[in-house]
Design a protein around this nucleic acid. Structure first.
Lengths: 226, 226
DNA sequence: TGTTCGACGAGAGCGGTGCTCTCGTTCGCG
DNA sequence: CGCGAACGAGAGCACCGCTCTCGTCGAACA
């Protein structure tokens, strides 16, 4: 299987298109991202871009996947697997927030209003789950290390799905669905806090965003049981 | 001060425009809301709409304010001032969630990605604070009723602003900034949970959204101290 | 009461968008 | 070598936000 010159050119041009699009996304946001502007920046006709992305939404989907991946990598890099659970949780939360503040438009694309034409979650769900996996690993490690108060083995199938159970530490005696529910809640709360800060809903209420975030995430960790 | 026929016509037409816009917002979302389509529905030239709203963003701002107002009214209606704090908190949370699920596009407009041209918060902040006021009232009432564990009188000016303190129960001995921080966190967590549900981030993790939400909000209430 | 000035609605138009179609070219596989 | 598929460019369609002009009509003012 040799890669022909045409295939290589196609891969390169595809990368150039996504690079240009990512740059424009960072500058003007997803709503103002224009496929024609991408083509203009690359010096090609707008119709030529459609050879590589069948629609603007597909290009956005590509950026969404890349964004989830980048955020997931940031979360993984922030984790310190040898530290106690609270420190790990805090580090990952800080990592997610730092990434969000550094890439506000990407963050808004990932966690803000969904694009009008619903993106197909099939492609994105794998990349999107990376941060969840990191949090699940912290939860599982904490349970195995006995750092979590033992809980009843309540299994409430209607609450947390089997997939989520697998990610959130698996079947460990220290983990029942109440703990996993708190973990899921903390997960969404992390994004609630970041979104409120980024989208301006905390303006006038919170003075020092850094310290508020740290104390809030500590509060969530206490809720989980760390 | 008499209202001339012209003024009355202007007020009526303004209302018709916002009504049509609200309808389109509910149907196709903010991103696809078109000023020309509004004009078309009203049988007028698109340029005529600009006599009433100087730009599309101003029309959207109007819808944002109305949305905050409607949501605030729903939260106030859901509150049961005579019930114990936990029940009140739960009722308001359920009310907000119910409103969000009934008006997903409006919710996304309010709490999703901000519109490209930042809306001026001056006009919206008053309407936006209604839900916060409801939650603050619950917190204050709980403190006055002694339903909150007494706390140190720590005043951490860098964390929670004076305005937020005033809304969140004022200066009561049962309320220190740690409590208020938890309340602000719970507030953002409420929207984090609703956003995750509405925007699909819980797909594959949460089975029964209703029960998950109730138990999650109960968990948050416990965190606040209710 | 008559006049004037501002509000109004309509239409044309500008530059932009996503997307489609056609047409000539060029590359790669059989 | 030849053929078909991939490719790039251009024109074009329908739509968008927004601006400008122009004729009309109402309301306040002299």
């Amino acid at each position: 299987m040799v890669t022909t010159a045409r295939e290589r050119a196609r891969a390169e041009l595809t990368a150039e298109i996504t690079d240009s699009a990512r740059r424009q996304l960072a500058e003007v946001g997803a709503a103002a991202l224009s496929l024609r502007a991408v083509a203009r920046e690359l010096g090609m006709a707008s119709s030529a871009v459609y050879r590589y992305f069948p629609s603007r939404d597909d290009l956005l989907t590509r950026l969404i996947i890349d964004g989830y991946d980048d955020l997931g990598a940031a979360a993984e890099a922030a984790d310190a697997p040898d530290a106690p659970p609270l420190e790990r949780w805090l580090a990952v939360c800080r990592g997610v927030r730092t990434w969000a503040r550094a890439h506000p438009h990407e963050y808004a694309l990932l966690f803000g209003s969904p694009v009008p034409g619903y993106q197909a979650p099939e492609d994105t769900v794998a990349a999107a789950s990376r941060v969840g996996v990191v949090l699940g690993r912290i939860l599982g490690d904490a349970a195995r290390a006995g750092a979590l108060p033992p809980a009843g083995d309540e299994r409430d199938a209607a609450l947390v799905s089997d997939d989520a159970v697998a990610v959130l530490g698996g079947e460990h005696p220290s983990l029942d669905d109440a703990v996993r529910l708190r973990a899921l809640l903390a997960w969404s709360s992390l994004y609630g806090a970041i979104s409120f800060e980024l989208f301006g809903h905390f303006v006038g209420s919170v003075e020092d965003g850094d310290r508020f975030f740290d104390r809030a995430m500590t509060e969530l960790a206490r809720m989980i049981g760390f």
